[in-house]
Simulated assay, not measured.
Amino acid sequence: MEIIGSEKRTMGSGIYLIIDPSMDESILLNKLKLCLREKLAAVQIWDNFKDDQNIIELINKICEQCHAKNVPILVNNRWELLNSSLLDGVHFDVIPENYTQIKGSVIQPFISGLTCNNDLTHVEWASRNKLDYISFCSIFPSQTANSCEIVNFSTIHDTTRNYGLPIYLSGGIKPENIHQLDELKYTGIAVVSGVMSTNKPNESIRKYLEKLNKK
């Protein structure tokens, strides 16, 4: 197993791709390979594993593909997998009660992020605990982010004014509505179905990047 040591990969700007590990493995890995032809900020593995999966084996296959392009890989919620895989970090959907204990339990430096909504106490917690980034969900109505409330743009404005955290935006964002985000300052956008549900996901990413580059 690769040892990261005292250094950790860093997330970039642009597209933060979220993938579903319950997808057929060969289809998932082939689509990911296509996605990696384009520039990605990071990849997150959604916490949606199948009961009969060899989770560590699948995670490491994903990590090896992404690390070849120096793209960091995070897992959704399942921080305990950090010690037994090539993962670079964890994204929490809610504030973990035992974050100090988690940091002490993980044997290497890791990227950490948190989903935030209109409650700025979540942003304050992420800032106080020195998380690497936050993700606001949901920006627009979305089937894949249907558990998230719609985030007010004023909340994001307040965050950029008062906190130095990198911000990713998630939920219902498509190439045709990215222009509606022009008033916001953000590092990148998180996408799921807008890319992975297509047969040519690299072309979908390219369309997003073209719009982002015009921002």
Rank of each mutant, 00 (worst) to 15 (best):
I95P: 04
P72N: 06
G89W: 00
I73N: 01
F92S: 06
N76Y: 11
H91L: 14
N70D: 13
D88P: 05
W79P: 09
D93F: 13
N77Y: 05
V71K: 09
V71T: 13
V75D: 00
G89P: 01
L87H: 00
G89R: 01
V90N: 08
V71D: 02
N77W: 05
V75G: 00
L86T: 06
L74Q: 13
P72T: 08
H91R: 13
K69D: 11
I95R: 06
L86R: 11
V71C: 10
D93H: 14
P72I: 02
V75K: 01
N77A: 02
N70M: 11
L82S: 07
H67Q: 08
N77F: 06
L86N: 14
G89F: 00
L81F: 11
N76A: 12
H67E: 01
D88W: 03
Q65L: 15
N76F: 11
V75Q: 00
I95Y: 03
R78A: 09
N77D: 12
N83C: 08
W79L: 07
D93A: 15
H91F: 11
L87A: 03
C66D: 04
R78Y: 01
N76D: 15
V71Q: 06
N76C: 12
F92N: 07
L82I: 09
L81Y: 11
L86K: 14
S85C: 10
V94W: 11
L86A: 12
L81A: 05
C66A: 10
S84P: 07
F92M: 10
